[in-house]
């Protein structure tokens, strides 16, 4: 029992770390740090970096929470800790 709880927590941390890595990459990476090189690419009338900063990152944030809910639901069931 104890062991599986530890494992559940470790897996939870891993899911979190991956999702937060995407979160940071899209907002700080694509939206801010890499904005200038990305702005050379155009998405219709949007410079790509500008688009990530003012639009794309927000869509990705919504998707991230959705994915998190799905993955955690599965994990909760797998380790029998759901309600």
């Amino acid at each position: 029992m104890e062991k599986s709880r530890e494992e559940y927590w470790r897996k939870n941390l891993r899911i979190m770390a991956w999702l937060l890595a995407v979160w940071a990459f899209v907002s700080y990476g694509l939206g801010i740090i890499l904005v200038n090189p990305l702005n050379h690419i155009h998405l219709g009338g949007f410079p790509l970096g500008f688009w990530f900063a003012q639009q794309g990152s927000i869509y990705v944030f919504v998707l991230l929470i959705l994915v998190y809910c799905k993955l955690m639901r599965k994990l909760d069931r797998e380790y029998d800790v759901d309600e």
Binding site: F50, A53, F61
Partner: peptide
């Protein structure tokens, strides 16, 4: 964009 990302990214 810092308002846009800042005030939404917090929800993640």
């Amino acid at each position: 964009a810092y308002y846009l990302m800042g005030w939404t990214g917090g929800y993640v």
